[in-house]
Design a protein around this nucleic acid. Structure first.
Lengths: 332, 332
DNA sequence: CGCACATGGTTACACGTGTAAGTTAGATTG
DNA sequence: CAATCTAACTTACACGTGTAACCATGTGCG
């Protein structure tokens, strides 16, 4: 058993055991470019480090370098689904492959003024789902961290690795139009916090409709409540709408519940298409057609953007095609 | 516009502006106990710090202190639902109230040997959902971080702040038994990674049944697929089972889909109760009865356990009553 | 008066690391 | 053979902070 007061093993311990100077240890362990080390000493250092189980202190390294290898992701305050969870998991392994450690902060950043976070962590980059405020941007510039906007378009500065949400809406609408529907509806979410996402998706649906010369889609807010959803369904059905795009799979499930409540059937009376392909989607009555995003590809591109940003270069453009796909089921 | 090469504002800058020594700045900003500072200097220091927008370097502070104020949560590799997301959010604000910054790592820790994480972050405590391995425990001891096991029982060392999962199963079964059901079934998840959670829940259902002198529940694995679920429903119905507890809301929705597929109805032919109260639950056909956990209370207790652990004291016991509640809907 | 003592500060060091600059000793070269 | 160069290191400093140890004042008290 190790003592309770066992000291941390430092690079000086490794140097002592290997019989070299501390600088040599650092050069070996970091593969410093223009520094030549003989093979035998290199081996001795590596052996000593392994034997002692040496792991460098992140605090000291960050202090010296001024930049850490931590990438911080600020989660929005609205509830996240499994699709975001899978994105985060993929992003974590993708960044780890580049020597970056990925970390997520779930707190709503309205709570604490976010500078509290840089006080605690000194990240190399910060990923957020919504745009940064101007004050946040200058604070990040002066702290030397790279701001990155994910999943949405960036209107201001900061690198963007956005999945264009317009595309999601366009794919939904195109699928319905291809099935022969001409009068579309849009089920808008009740939660005000996701407007940032819902607005461009609705815009995409509108764009697809007008591109085919169809009338502008009839948007209605749908809460996650059967009675309210049934009311929206009644209005759509009365005005000749035969198919609706929903912001979400959950909103789509609410619409389906409303359809059943009104005694109608889907897709005969009203076709419904969602977004995300949550597990419940295939279990609905009828099984829900939905649009899914390739989270692995998005994570890979996001990771590339991050490493480009911390290296100071500009990131690659997202290969936008075939990243958003329709999962056809019974509701359309 | 600030220069591109703008330097970080340090405590020395604050000291210079306030006309005091750097130590005084540190004493003022940290409210060091046995150090007396006059009110006027204190004010000057505070003003200077605010004017300069000073935020201490976490790296330097951690290096000096040996312990940071970061609490790291290791996420499991199985997909997390919105209930875990809400728990994390609550935990973040609860810990922030104690001056701790909460951070989540989504990567499966089989990927990298987890020591890679302490290389990057030096947390004060680590929260995991499953048990730690013995090697991990000794590594954490020697690194001085407090291990904490959440949401499950801890069989080994390390503080535990567990919500007993047996209780969840017991509540499910009791609700069905109170409604008059005597022959119960259990819908076991297909995903092997959640066995750690499913096993105790099933045990709770068994315990509740035997406590009332009922036969042992008929457990069956249910995949998230309508056909497979329908087959399980057929067997239950054939063997006289009238009500099933599901591991999950999603598994419960699969059972409901199986019930419809067989041409049966719920709860008349088969009552179903889930766990988690996901948004889709109330939108199902019929609306799903489920068991929900008060995530705010759990987060508060978990936070208390963490602060107790980093302070070296032992944490309080969880007030286990009334933390798990049944949300009665139409499926029972 | 002389001593102890609280008040309000300052000086100096340590934390563990990366890296620029210096120092050998042997190889190369004109 | 002297001068130069290169491989293989070592020495020394800086990053920004917390805190123990010192120092200079008054101030009460016998």
């Amino acid at each position: 058993m190790a003592d309770a007061a066992t000291r941390r093993v430092t690079s000086a311990d490794v140097a002592r055991l290997a019989g070299v100077s501390r600088a040599t240890v650092s050069y070996v362990l970091n593969d410093t470019p223009r520094q030549t080390i003989s093979a035998t000493t290199r081996g001795r250092v590596l052996d000593a480090a392994a034997q002692l189980g040496y792991a460098p202190s992140a605090a000291a390294r960050t202090l010296r370098t001024g930049r850490s290898d931590v990438v911080l992701c600020l989660l929005p305050d609205w509830p996240i689904g499994p699709e975001v969870g899978s994105l985060l998991g993929n992003l974590s392994t993708a960044l780890a492959r580049h020597g970056l450690t990925f970390v997520v902060h779930p707190g709503n950043h309205n709570d604490r003024p976010m500078a509290e976070l840089w006080k605690a962590i000194t990240p190399a980059a910060v990923i957020a789902f919504a745009d940064f405020s101007e004050a946040e941007l200058v604070a990040m510039r002066s702290a030397g961290v790279a701001p990155i906007v994910a999943l949405a378009r960036s209107r201001s500065q900061g690198r963007a690795a956005a999945v264009p949400q317009e595309l999601v809406g366009r794919r939904q609408a195109e699928h319905l139009i291809a099935a022969g529907h001409t009068r579309l509806g849009y089920a808008y979410p009740d939660d005000q916090r996701v407007r940032f996402f819902a607005e461009p998706r609705l815009a995409g649906v509108r764009a697809a409709a007008t591109a085919r010369g169809l009338p502008v889609p009839a948007a209605a807010t749908v809460t996650l409540d059967v009675a309210k959803a049934a009311e929206a369904v009644r209005r759509w059905h009365a005005t000749g709408v035969t198919a609706v795009c929903a912001y979400n799979d959950e909103v789509a499930l609410a619409v389906l519940a409303g359809v059943r409540k009104r005694g109608l059937t889907s897709p005969a009376d009203l076709a419904v298409i969602g977004v995300d392909d949550i597990p419940s989607a295939r279990l609905a009555e009828p099984a829900l057609t939905t649009v899914t995003t390739d989270q692995g590809a998005v994570a890979g591109h996001l990771a590339a953007t991050v490493v480009a940003a911390v290296s100071g270069r500009t990131g690659p453009a997202l290969p936008v095609t075939s990243i958003v796909k329709v999962v056809a089921r019974d509701s359309t």
